[in-house]
């Protein structure tokens, strides 16, 4: 048990600070932009959502690449929860639906229902090239293509997949428009 605590202390805090960069670690230096981005995001969430923005992620047919990067938002480096952004388990609790695509026809009804189950006011962000425009899959007998072809979309975050930083920027852009 002691070794567990020792590991925690020796690892230290790796979360990339948005105020002052005390650690100066190599990884930190590489992710320029997180500082001001985080500050802005926190300010927006504080002002518009009383400090907590709830996101429900919906995979509507993605290849799972976008999900991996959305997961990364919760790792110790990005730790998006410190800005008040929280991923929730039900659309009933969500302010924002983060939808990855392309929307497969087999997921079309489930996506519509998830959208309907989300309380107003609600926003939809389409994530990834596929969610934004159909990407590598486009429209076919099995795919509806872009998320906007199925439910109203308020913002898109392109990229294949978008990096965690791009995801944060995209969430911020939704509310700064």
């Amino acid at each position: 048990m002691l070794s567990l605590y020792r590991k925690i202390f020796t690892t230290g805090v790796l979360t990339e600070k948005f105020a002052k960069n005390k650690l100066g670690q190599q990884q930190t230096a590489r992710e320029l932009g997180l500082d001001e981005l985080g500050e802005k995001l926190k300010a927006t969430v504080d002002k518009r959502f009383a400090g907590s923005l709830h996101i429900r992620q919906v995979d509507a047919g993605s290849c799972n690449g976008c999900e991996l990067e959305i997961h990364a938002l919760n790792n110790v480096y990005y730790d998006i929860e410190r800005f008040g952004v929280h991923f929730v388990a039900s659309p009933r609790h969500a302010d924002v639906l983060l939808v990855t695509g392309p929307v497969s026809r087999n997921m079309e009804a489930a996506l519509r229902r998830t959208y309907e189950a989300t309380a107003n006011p609600k926003w939809v962000i389409a994530v990834g090239d596929c969610g934004a425009c159909g990407g590598e899959f486009g429209v076919s007998y099995a795919s509806c293509g872009a998320v906007a072809n199925v439910i109203p979309v308020d913002a898109v975050i392109p990229g294949c997949p978008p990096t965690p930083l791009e995801l944060m920027r995209g969430i911020l852009n939704l509310f700064s428009a």
């Binding site: 047919g61 997921m107 899959f137 099995a142 795919s143």
Partner: peptide
């Protein structure tokens, strides 16, 4: 549910 016609496209 995520069948998106990979083989066809």
């Amino acid at each position: 549910y995520v069948h998106k016609g990979v083989e066809k496209i």
